[in-house]
Design a protein around this nucleic acid. Structure first.
Lengths: 246, 246
DNA sequence: TGACACCGATGTGTGCTGACATCAAAACTC
DNA sequence: GAGTTTTGATGTCAGCACACATCGGTGTCA
């Protein structure tokens, strides 16, 4: 066996194929043979087979006897899988992916805020309040990296505090969205005062258990976020997936 | 080899382990050995290894050298994976799963309606209108199975029409929620007239491009749905996942 | 004598390989 | 054109070499 290095062969194989499929260099309908992948990746059958099985479970490929490994169309991919999202963010589909995530956030966060106001444990409410205060300080001081860190912290706490496991699972994706925004230079040097105030409003409302106010303030943040990020995906066309007939 | 039957060994192995882990009979921290699974499932190592790799990508287990295959805690499971959701719906966690899905719907659908009013292609708007009319007829006639079918159709069109691939991907889960509601006997024999009216309102608003009205009417439906389904998960405790520190 | 650091044995996942089974597409026969 | 055979790919199996985390024994030092 050749030098295996840090990451496992299995992981590397998945990464290699995943990026190529999602990136588009292996187009929909493209057929590969397992043996051919062995040669290409210089790994054994077991590695290829295990990698293909994982990609199959993500909806990226299907295997058919007598045919081979076929790349499936994008609408078959599991759009909620963290790996798929990561691969898309690293590809041309980055804009469309960020739009999807931003819209998902804009849907989920106000409801999460509402739920957190009703259900969140006390220490989490307190921490949320502290973070929102720290955000104000960092924001007014123009400390962008610190602000980003706290921003992620804030929204993570909010989503976790909802007590909905699906919402809580979106923290990773939200972090991607937020960092993506700064990376794209879409953040003003100094966050707007209203945005800081809205974050404070959300934290206070959750602290006092005011669900309606929490939702409202969160909606404001989301509206602002979307309008700031819109340039990223402006030219990206929307795709309408056919609804499965029965 | 014993009779292998319709589904592949690989699929059966995944199903076997997935149901047991999600169902709780293999508790968090439980450690299995690959060899032991071979004996238990009466399959070879490759089948076990490929199945374990898939479960690993779903966050259900992790493998450590010298230790074995360890079952991970529920908060590490990918809550958006269709398989995981299916396993949970078939287990004790059914109530909590339905709550998560219902809350997700209640967050997403109003936003999807808003987006559909802006972006949906014309034929989809037309179809949505037709379906909402058919729903009214089936509802008033008390034809429950037909109503359920149309209801699923309606919400699928709505989610697809948003042009957001993540929203569109939720059709399967929404269908589960809706069927789950009838299965649990939570649907009145004859859907309330207001609900039928709200569905018509959503369809009309999307048809005429009135985003705000589409959102509002959709919110009403969601509010009603949640309140109808609440009994299912009343006694289920909420789980608060620790937010990952950096 | 007791505490601690070191180190080698052990067991288990990782990776590789050759062989056979299965099954569906494609080619062939009638 | 329908039915049959062939073919070629994945599916499944079993055995091996290797890497490496853990455990327990050994040695050193106080």
């Amino acid at each position: 066996m050749l030098t295996n290095m840090s990451t496992s062969l299995h992981h590397r194989a998945i990464e290699h194929l995943g990026t190529r499929i999602v990136g588009g260099s292996l187009p929909t309908g493209h057929v590969m043979l397992a043996e051919q992948l062995e040669d290409e990746l210089k790994v054994s059958r077991s590695v290829v087979r295990e990698a293909v099985r994982v990609l199959q479970s993500l909806g990226l490929v299907e295997t058919t006897k007598r045919v081979g490994i076929r790349v499936l169309p994008p609408h078959r991919w599991n759009p909620f899988d963290p790996q798929v999202i990561r691969w898309r963010l690293a590809s041309d589909g980055r804009g469309a992916q960020l739009r999807s995530l931003a819209e998902l956030r804009s849907a989920v966060e106000p409801v999460a805020a509402e739920l957190a106001a009703v259900n969140a444990p006390d220490d989490l409410r307190r921490e949320l309040l502290e973070v929102s205060l720290a955000m104000r300080d960092a924001g007014q001081a123009g400390d962008v990296p610190r602000f980003l860190e706290l921003d992620i912290q804030f929204h993570s706490l909010l989503l976790s505090g909802s007590g909905n496991e699906m919402f809580a699972n979106l923290v990773g994706q939200v972090a991607e969205t937020l960092t993506g925004r700064t990376v794209h230079g879409l953040m003003p040097d100094r966050p707007r005062d209203v945005v800081l105030q809205w974050h404070l409003d959300v934290a206070k409302a959750i602290f006092t258990g005011d669900a309606a106010e929490a939702r409202e303030a969160s909606s404001m943040i989301m509206r602002q976020t979307i309008s700031e990020m819109e340039p990223v995906w402006m030219e990206q066309p929307r795709v309408f997936v056919p609804v499965p007939r029965r």
